[in-house]
Design a protein around this nucleic acid. Structure first.
Lengths: 343, 343
DNA sequence: TGTTAGCACTCTTTCATAACGAGTGCTAAA
DNA sequence: TTTAGCACTCGTTATGAAAGAGTGCTAACA
């Protein structure tokens, strides 16, 4: 469709704009050494590229900036195989340098490094808890009326919830119940717990425990814990430094969205595996219409665990960010697989 | 020191400026019904108040705004006994309407309501964990090499940490160790745990457990958990709506500070009990020089637990915010005392 | 036929200037 | 002691001119 010359010019314009955030004019292009044509020729090509929808003008006599369609084309067809800066690679590797055991800490640190490297905002959806398998249930009575239920998963994740005890409960009953729960539910994925409790465990409890029904509903309720997986952020305020966000109103919308867990969860959830780029209005959210979101997934073995994302202006360093996400998601997957595979 | 008329004029100026964020001129003051003097008289008084340091001008011929000294005087001497709006009172009461068991949830919700009512940013320092007493220690092995230590406190707070096991550990040893720890350490305040472990528990472990020394250091290390108490925020982005933060640079500084847990912790920590107001530069942090911070403490019984704070512009609704904090800290204290006093 | 030089035109940015309004400080009169 | 009046200051807004960056188009060129 496009001639080689058009491709060249388009690519240089996009790169230039990504770097400078200023509309690119024909004269400044003609001065570049990789472009040997006169400004008039370039003007003609730019007019064509605009007609095709890849470029835009901010006003009648301004230079050109890439349109969303332009960015889309750039991302899909013009990104050369990523050659990452060595420093970037080293920075990512450094995340895994110290021996950390907690999955969450690794994830948290990834988010932080990513935002520092890019000066954009990073969002990491923590490991999906619902696929974790139950390692142990524990109930600790706090006083006559309340107790705390604690569940530990095979990945070392801990959840807890306080619930109220039925009056005059026998401590022995609690202990028996915990034993039954553990013997029957160990290694069951958290999302299956609830079903299994009513199908298999209820019968057993009925045989051994007084007052089992009021207890059971408390416990079952408690085990419904893993509602949303945890979100981690890095560089929440980085977008304030981007020149496209000089406007307070825009910033307010964006920051409000970032602060709203629900919104962010909606945006980053259920990503198909691999790397994906959403540009400008491709993100449904109006607060993000000047933003691009790049997501990558990470896994443990064959099981997809979570998502890493970078939120930046549409004028984003796509090449570099994609490179960073690729290497990070790969490394995360490798480390996690090694660390927890031998359960 | 000040005449009654000066007091009246000063108070009206402050109230007007808090409402409108605009410098207050003599003519607009003269129009108010509570002020019966001519604009010229008021001008003279304003000149005097400025000389005394209570008022400032933004430029030669502008109206007056309160100086920091002025706000300080206003807060210390001019705040009438707080008459709170009924809706405000009801909103605060609503926090405690549902029966919630988790202390953290109550605190979290308080922060949220507070920020919604005021349109400022609220910061709540969660209950000091170090004063909690140990209810139970649990150790759950995850695999051959790692285990997770869980501690539960008397207030239902749960902390956990993964640590590495010495090679070839005997499961029976772990169980014996947990029993010893629980029998010896239950009801010990968290901050005393470490000392007590080495003084009393080490000897016992030596008698009963193989390999006790390498285990002990792991455990002791694990129990050093409660580093910082948890911070909760409400309305982090509210300051973006305040007219004094039209300047992107100011916003960036402020938001960066709010996002930095260390900074915030430093600012809100170790507050003497009661309500305190820090105005403008009285806050050492330069990002806060256009802000005021009002803090209040809450307790459980006689034991001071944490701090609630509101961060707003120096042009803050002092009267209302102080009133809100008073009633909230009082109610929090009451509820918490009732809920957990009967341990 | 593709490329380029040249020129008229457009639009933004910057600067200077003027007019207006809000507000002050000071003086003199009530 | 209070107030009316007036000159003065400063910020805000509108206007216009000039400069600069960039475009589109036409005509000439290789």
């Amino acid at each position: 469709m496009l001639t080689d010359r058009q491709l060249l010019i388009f690519q240089v314009i996009v790169n230039d704009f990504i770097r400078s955030a200023q509309p690119v004019g024909s004269r400044s292009l003609a001065k570049k050494e990789e472009i040997q044509y006169s400004s008039a020729t370039i003007r003609n090509e730019m007019a064509d590229l605009e007609e095709l929808g890849f470029l835009e003008k901010t006003h009648t006599s301004s230079g050109r900036i890439p349109s969303e369609k332009g960015y889309r084309f750039y991302v899909d067809h013009l990104l050369s195989p990523q050659k990452l800066d060595k420093r970037d690679v080293n920075s990512v590797k450094s995340i895994f340098a110290e021996r950390i055991y907690e999955l969450e800490k690794i994830v948290q640190r990834s988010a932080q490094i990513l935002s520092e490297l890019t000066n954009y905002t990073s969002i990491v959806l923590g490991p999906a808890v619902k696929d974790n398998k139950l390692k142990r249930i524990q109930i600790v009575p706090l006083n006559e009326e309340t107790a705390i239920a604690i569940i530990v998963t095979d990945t070392g994740h801990v959840e807890n919830k306080i619930f109220s005890l039925p009056p005059n409960i026998d401590p022995g009953d609690i202990e028996r119940m915990v034993n039954i729960l553990n013997s029957r539910l160990t290694n069951v994925p958290l999302e299956d717990l609830n079903g299994k409790i009513y199908k298999e465990v209820a019968i057993l409890l009925k045989q051994h425990i007084h007052n089992y029904d009021s207890m059971l509903s408390s416990i079952a309720d408690t085990l419904k814990i893993p509602a949303n997986d945890k979100l981690f952020f890095g560089g929440k305020t980085n977008m304030l430094s981007q020149p496209e966000f000089h406007d307070i109103e825009k910033i307010k919308n964006l920051m409000n969205m970032i602060e709203d867990e629900e919104d962010m969860y909606e945006i980053i959830r259920k990503n198909p595996s691999g790397i994906h780029v959403k540009i400008g209005k491709e993100n449904k959210n109006t607060a993000m219409e000047n933003c691009s979101l790049i997501t990558a997934t990470y896994s443990m073995g064959a099981e997809q665990l979570g998502t890493i994302a970078i939120l930046g202006p549409t004028r984003m360093e796509y090449s570099r960010v994609i490179g960073l996400l690729q290497i990070l998601s790969h490394d995360l997957t490798t480390v996690l697989t090694k660390l927890y595979q031998n359960k």
